[in-house]
């Protein structure tokens, strides 16, 4: 394997990736990259270029997905539960505006979201 792929250098490079979709593709490249992308700091740049700041003691990854959902009028269920560990208050903020719910019912909602809005 190319020595360029040493873990420390891969981490340095991935910290400069500044958009979420590219980061999620990087997570599919290999297990080492998946683990690096899972680190919260990997999401800092993606938030920074969008001007999103995290609340005190918040996580960058969560900040990215919460804001991304709002930006795209999506609920977290559309992105898959694993991407986000949202509290109830945040879920209720995004669910009413979700374009997926409006266009395709609840088909794309994750189990957690369905439970929260009282439907199976």
């Amino acid at each position: 394997m190319d020595p360029f792929l040493r873990e420390d250098l891969s981490r340095c490079v991935l910290r400069w990736v500044d958009d979420g979709p590219t980061l999620t593709r990087c997570a599919q490249v290999c297990k080492m990259w998946r683990d690096i992308v899972a680190e919260d700091e990997s999401w800092y740049m993606a938030c920074r270029v969008m001007g999103w700041t995290r609340p005190n003691s918040g996580r960058w990854r969560r900040t990215f997905f919460l804001n991304y959902c709002r930006l795209k009028n999506l609920c977290p269920g559309c992105l898959g539960k694993r991407h986000l560990d949202m509290d109830e208050e945040s879920l209720f903020t995004v669910i009413p505006i979700c374009s997926w719910i409006k266009s395709s019912g609840l088909a794309r909602l994750g189990t957690g979201s369905r439970t929260l809005i009282g439907q199976d």
Partner: peptide
């Protein structure tokens, strides 16, 4: 599984 989970990323791109 990962492709399915990360499908939103390709749609966005």
């Amino acid at each position: 599984k990962m492709r399915e989970e990360n499908n939103w990323g390709s749609e966005m791109s």
